[in-house]
């Protein structure tokens, strides 16, 4: 009987079929509600920012891949730079000059990602690296937010967190501060809708199992708990938990930024500490730090702590006694 010959391969022979491009695409899809609300509040400028950031990101990524001798089409297709670009584009003020957006994205891709070895190697969240560089280098342009509202206008005004900070510094009471038109029903005017949109997108990602619940929940708890406690102790000097959850980049940070898998902790317990640290640091920076919103710096600071978290939160292996 003639023998049939076959090729030999290693098991397993079936896989789930999740790919990096699919994960990235899901994240971009979940950002759509946020972008839509952004356009409703501030006008179509954010779409231009998205375009500029995407173009800059793809260009820098292609350049870096070519310089590093990596296959350009395969890695360009994975979509990870597009997520970085999108997160940066929706985080910066919509009227930011286009060349600043392009510069920030270039910093994010080249310094925040490729300087460390490319996909999977960056210890810091690339979008936040770009954002932090822009914020520190161009503080005026980066804090010039237009007044949100159905009427699109180029008149700029203070954000809710700005108003809170300056109001407290000038010893106004919380009731007087909250009367400022920058404040909406529960949080920042306009900002509360952005946070709601980010929350919906985040829930979508949780349901599709693209992200896991540990980091978002821990971050929101880490932000809400100190806020609630201090608000109970001294309501005149501290805003409540709901305000913090509905203002600034809280929900975007919790579900989209802090959950960047490459720069986050690896084990589930480590992720809880990581998220809690980001939430706590955000509250500290907002209350006592030098910037109105602390999400970006909180994320970068906790990225520094990740190797330590990984080292000390290795889960107990099946069959081993407690560590």
């Amino acid at each position: 009987m003639p023998a049939m010959q076959f090729q030999v391969v290693a098991p397993p022979y079936v896989i789930a079929g999740f790919t990096v491009p699919r994960v990235m695409f899901q994240v971009l899809l979940a950002l759509v509600p946020f972008a839509v609300v952004h356009v409703w509040l501030f006008g179509p400028a954010v779409l231009l920012q998205l375009g500029v950031a995407a173009g800059s990101a793809l260009g820098c990524e292609a350049l870096a891949l070519r310089l590093r001798g990596r296959p350009v089409p395969q890695f360009l297709r994975d979509g990870s730079v597009l997520v970085t670009a999108a997160l940066l584009a929706v985080s910066v003020p919509p009227l930011l000059p286009w060349w600043l957006t392009a510069f920030g994205t270039a910093v994010a891709v080249l310094l925040g990602k490729h300087a460390y070895g490319g996909l999977g190697q960056n210890p810091f969240n690339p979008a936040m690296v770009g954002y932090a560089v822009l914020l520190v280098s161009f503080p005026v342009e980066m804090t010039r937010w237009p007044v949100p509202g159905p009427e699109w206008d180029a008149v700029t005004g203070a954000t809710a967190l700005d108003a809170l900070r300056t109001g407290l510094a000038q010893s106004y009471t919380m009731q007087e501060i909250l009367a400022d038109p920058a404040f909406g029903r529960v949080g920042a005017a306009g900002g509360e809708w952005l946070n709601l949109a980010a929350l919906l997108g985040g829930i979508y990602l949780l349901l599709r199992r693209v992200i896991r619940w540990q980091i978002p929940l821990a971050m929101l708890a880490g932000l809400a708990l100190p806020a609630a406690v201090m608000h109970a102790i001294d309501p005149g000097a501290h805003a409540g938990a709901l305000f913090h959850l509905a203002s600034g980049a809280t929900m975007l940070g919790a579900f989209f930024i802090a959950t960047d898998p490459v720069s986050a902790a690896t084990s589930d317990r480590g992720r809880l500490y990581f998220g809690a640290g980001i939430g706590g640091l955000t509250w500290i920076i907002r209350s006592w730090g030098g910037y109105p919103d602390g999400v970006a710096f909180a994320v970068l600071l906790m990225n520094l702590a990740v190797p330590l978290l990984d080292r000390y939160t290795v889960p107990r292996i099946h069959g081993h006694r407690g560590r």
Partner: peptide, 17 residues
């Protein structure tokens, strides 16, 4: 592709590695 540290493997591992 390089590992993106998503952690899905750790969630699936029956030996909890």
């Amino acid at each position: 592709m390089p590992c993106i540290r998503c952690g899905d493997c750790a969630s699936a591992c029956p030996a909890r590695l």
